[in-house]
Amino acid sequence: MAHHEENHDIVVQPANKEHIKKIWKTALILAAVTALEFLLAFTMERGPLLISIYVGLTIIKAFYIVAEFMHLRHESKTLIWSILIPTIFVFWLIVALLMESDGGVPNV
């Protein structure tokens, strides 16, 4: 069996401590932001200010997931932009539709 020969070539490298530390740091940031959102739900008055804070915190979480967990930050610039530009247009579309719709976001 030819496959058996190949198996012996595999060299398991030791764990990259630095990298693993960074993964847990990112996880900690995500957990902390979620905990903060949770806290704000019970301490702040509901309204446009709280909604803006939530949107901001959500974008922070999205950034860490996409940049670190999905590794996009470390990809080539062309890949980063080809993912980011369509996403920015979608955000624009969401904001435009919500602002222009008849119901509208009242008195923001």
Partner: peptide
């Protein structure tokens, strides 16, 4: 729903750890 969110974040962490181990060929 907060507990559910933490579960999903944790499973994301173990997923990155699996990817990291894959880079090192650590089956």
């Amino acid at each position: 729903v907060g507990i559910m969110t933490f579960i999903l974040i944790l499973s994301s962490v173990t997923m990155v750890l699996a990817v990291e181990a894959g880079h090192r060929m650590d089956r």
